[in-house]
Design a protein around this nucleic acid. Structure first.
Length: 328
DNA sequence: TAGTATGATTTAAC
DNA sequence: GTTAAATCATACTA
């Protein structure tokens, strides 16, 4: 199921101010002792106002910022910059291809189109198709809702931290650059969360897809209409039951199945008929009689008989395999 | 529930 | 590419 990505803040930070002090704390702790003295908690309640109004404050503040900046840069210099995230790009591409992100796909596309044309029973496939689409739409909805939530949370959190730091910058050496860096850190954290969301979404789509494709493999008997059409052709072309590509297309159209299903059916039928002609004799008689009745009706209507291109003259003479194996 | 029917897949030959 | 043949997996039926 769905695993809602959690807000991942490093070192157990649970509040914006924690992050603020955490981010700054490292460099702050590296500052010389005399600087720490100015910021000691017992110092503030009594001296805060005096400190802010002190004539040396601006000068001292800029020095503090400079020292801090150098310290931070020396630490950051050790750390490697993140490489461009290829995985994020892959996730984005997949979500776009699956129709989760970007404009919603309408009509036939992706695996749905395959199933909609390959199954034996079009109605059932329509149900599966709409089921797939409904579930994909659900995933899409959850994805966008979560994404929006995270973006809003990120924006609110950033504003909150920025305000907090601006407020603190009146009494602590926090430069605008530092605030910018903090904003970048927050955005980085939220990007990680977004990536987790994208990953979960991709997993959900893959699971849905595999389930759908498994369902597609389920065998369904052809409709009576399809079986009728196929059998009629088979028994009326018993001498050469190898429909041409055009004939296959026609049969597929009439039976509401695919051309490859027609090919499969004829492959199965030929081998099974050959193996046990006796079993199919009754069926053959029924279709022979049916064909005869149809032909009589056509003649009775005064039209030219629409007889099969290869009449049932008795022998199977496969053009490609003239081994007499299919003789009646 | 076992046996049978049937659509799909795989393999090998052409 | 098509096809036969074997096989698989599932649907159907008594």
């Amino acid at each position: 199921g769905w695993v809602k990505p959690r807000l991942l803040l490093s070192h157990g930070a649970h509040h914006p101010s924690d992050v603020a002090t955490q981010g700054l704390g490292k460099s702050w702790r590296l500052s010389p002792p005399f600087l720490v003295a100015f910021t000691h908690s017992s110092f503030f309640p009594f001296r805060k106002h005096a400190l802010n109004c002190h004539r040396m404050k601006p000068a001292l503040f800029s020095v503090l910022c400079e020292i801090k900046e150098k310290t931070v840069l020396s630490i950051r210099g050790i750390q490697e910059e993140d490489p461009p995230d290829a995985q994020l790009m892959r996730l984005d591409n997949m979500l776009l291809a699956e129709g989760v992100s970007g404009p919603e796909k309408r009509g036939r596309g992706g695996p749905m189109a395959v199933a909609a044309t390959s199954g034996g029973c079009p109605n059932d496939n329509s149900i599966e198709h709409s089921d797939y689409r409904a579930k994909l739409s659900q995933i899409r909805q959850i994805y966008h809702s979560e994404l929006e939530k995270y973006e809003q949370a990120c924006s609110e959190f950033t504003t909150h931290v920025m305000n907090l730091l601006r407020e603190q910058s009146r009494t602590r050496p926090i430069s605008p650059k530092e605030i910018e860096r903090m904003v970048n850190i927050i955005h980085g954290k939220f990007s990680t969360i977004q990536m987790q969301l994208k990953q979960s979404t991709c997993e959900a789509v893959m699971i849905l897809r595999s389930r759908f494709l498994d369902a597609r493999r389920k065998r369904r008997n052809f409709s009576k209409q399809a079986t009728e059409v196929l059998n009629e052709y088979f028994y009326s072309h018993l001498s050469n039951p190898y429909p041409s590509e055009e004939a296959k297309e026609e049969l597929a159209k009439k039976g509401g199945i695919t051309v490859s299903q027609v090919s499969n059916w004829f492959g199965n039928k030929r081998i099974r008929y050959k193996k046990n002609m006796g079993k199919f004799q009754e069926e053959a008689n029924i279709y022979a009689a049916k064909t005869a009745v149809d032909a009589t009706n056509v003649v009775a209507q005064g039209n030219q008989a629409n007889s099969p291109s290869t009449p049932n003259s008795g022998e199977w003479e496969p053009v490609k395999r003239p081994d007499g194996f299919f003789c009646l």
